[in-house]
Simulated assay, not measured.
Amino acid sequence: MASVDTITNFLATLSVIVTLLAFHGRAQLSPTFYSSTCPNVQTIVRDAMEEAVEKEARMGASILRLFFHDCFVQGCDASILLDDTATFTGEKNAIPNKNSARGFEVIDAIKTKVEAACSNTVSCADILALAARDGVVLLGGPTWTVELGRRDSRTASLTAANTQIPFPSDNLSTLISLFAAKGLSARDMTALSGSHTIGQARCTNFRARIYNETNIDPNFAALRQANCPTSGGDNNLAPLDIQTPTQFDNAYYQNLVVRRGLLHSDQQLFNGGSQDALVKTYSGNSEAFSSDFTAAVVRMGSIDPLTGTAGEIRKNCRLVN
């Protein structure tokens, strides 16, 4: 019969193994992953993002959205960056991405500079994660430590992109479920939705709200209707945050409290439901929002990464090697 110490040691070892399996990829990410192999990568990415955001402030929001849409499909693996080919179907033509996902050329430019400095070393997935952080900071938002060591996927999923990325028309219960499926809490969801304090949306994604919904400020609805007719003008743009559209702050939540959320999914966070109190907190406390946002985005960036020998380091972010 095994001794008590032997059994205890076995159970302890088993517990460690189970824990490692449960966090298989997350435990392998590290902020110092490239410290010896590509020590200047963060400077290269930041400088390139500074150039891109200076040229077009909206690009900070676009890159952050790319990161979000990437992580929600197969994990943070740069699958969203892959182009369709005659033999490969990517995610760019999925409903949430077609005619709206943008910034691919910025990631291409960063990849070219990184490859020149340290070839075949830094993944497109890590470049996207760093660029998303830098875009937020350049627009006045908080910074966070980016965990690195992701590798790039050789696959993509059009089906998953169509079913797992939240839609602007989603109700609160659906939003909570979609985030929960990725290991993110309702609090994470509400904090991450604050990314809509920057960026713009197309008329086709908010038309139903400004014409048909009652939980909306009438003056705000009229303002948006002026540039979004009942038919036509689908690609006309409006800022997601009417107050400070290119400043990463907590004004998004202030808008929700006065019924000025642009998207149906935005206003669902403040509509007599479970997130109302948190929205009120964020609307009056920018530090609370920043703290929760950075913690949530780090968790999102750790969704099912490919690490070790899984996947590859793409030479071109648009194509598998």
Rank of each mutant, 00 (worst) to 15 (best):
N227Y: 10
V136C: 13
S36N: 09
S100L: 04
S173Y: 09
M300E: 12
A57Y: 09
T163Y: 10
M1V: 00
I313K: 05
C71F: 00
G103L: 02
S15L: 06
S36G: 03
E312M: 11
L128C: 06
S169F: 14
Q243S: 15
R65L: 14
A221W: 01
A277S: 15
I110V: 08
A48S: 12
F289C: 03
G301A: 04
R299N: 12
R260V: 00
S286N: 04
F23N: 07
A94D: 05
Q267T: 02
V4Y: 14
A221T: 09
N9V: 11
P166N: 07
C76R: 01
V279R: 09
V258I: 13
A22D: 07
R46H: 04
S62N: 14
T204H: 03
L81T: 12
M59L: 13
A2M: 12
D5K: 13
I303D: 13
N40S: 14
A94W: 03
A238G: 06
C124S: 15
N120R: 10
S35R: 06
D83A: 03
H196W: 07
N285I: 05
V4K: 14
E50N: 05
L184M: 08
R259H: 10
H196Y: 12
M300C: 07
P218V: 05
I7D: 06
V257I: 11
V137W: 09
T112H: 00
K111Q: 11
Y34M: 06
R46L: 08
I176F: 12
F23M: 01
I313Q: 10
C124D: 11
R187H: 10
T43M: 01
L14I: 04
F10E: 07
A125G: 11
R58M: 13
D304Y: 12
K182M: 01
R207V: 07
K280S: 15
F206R: 08
N93M: 06
V122C: 03
N93T: 03
T89D: 04
E51T: 06
K315T: 11
Q247P: 05
L82G: 03
N285M: 03
P218I: 01
D83F: 02
T214Q: 11
D77Q: 09
S153H: 12
F289W: 12
H264S: 15
R65S: 13
F179H: 02
N227V: 15
V257E: 00
D241L: 09
S302M: 09
G232L: 01
L29M: 10
G311Y: 08
S265Y: 04
I216A: 07
L192K: 06
N236Q: 11
C124V: 10
S123E: 08
N99A: 08
Y253N: 08
T309L: 13
T8F: 12
T13E: 00
A310D: 15
A181P: 03
T89K: 13
S286H: 03
A101I: 09
G103P: 15
A251F: 05
R46Q: 14
I198C: 10
V53D: 06
Q28M: 11
S119P: 07
T281M: 04
R58K: 14
A160Q: 04
N250Y: 08
H264K: 15
T143E: 13
